[in-house]
């Protein structure tokens, strides 16, 4: 059941992006920026948590989820440390993902070479 819900929620989030791309000629880079920003806003006003409760990984794996984690991290840290938390919380909450992206990104670009498209 949770697989079905993750599939549905994740699929719908991707479909919205696809329609945006096809209708407005937004590039993938702009879509990613848009999604992370929207995710942080939805996370900040507390809506995204409800989507996660329903969709599980379907809501956390898309970049909206990354934005949500950043915002949730900032709020959590503000509660704990006051105003400094607004600056430390976002990156603390997402440190694992970002560090992994840097580490594996570097590693695999050293190991592999690009191939031309067929």
């Amino acid at each position: 059941m949770d697989y079905l819900r993750a599939f549905l929620v994740g699929g719908i989030i991707c479909v919205i992006a696809q329609i945006l791309m096809d209708k407005t000629k937004l590039t993938p880079a702009r879509i990613l920026v848009l999604y992370v920003t929207v995710g942080a806003i939805l996370g900040g006003i507390g809506i995204y948590k409800k989507i996660i409760d329903f969709g599980g990984a379907g809501a956390t794996v898309p970049l909206l989820g990354f934005g949500n984690s950043l915002a949730q991290g900032a709020i959590k840290a503000v509660k704990k440390d006051g105003i400094t938390g607004a600056f430390t919380g976002g990156l603390t909450a997402t440190a694992g993902g970002i560090a992994a992206a840097i580490f594996f990104g570097y590693l695999f670009s050293i190991i592999f070479n690009p191939r031309t498209k067929k």
Partner: peptide
Amino acid sequence: TSIIVGLIYY
């Protein structure tokens, strides 16, 4: 965005 969210919350 997350910093702004944090500040607003504060």
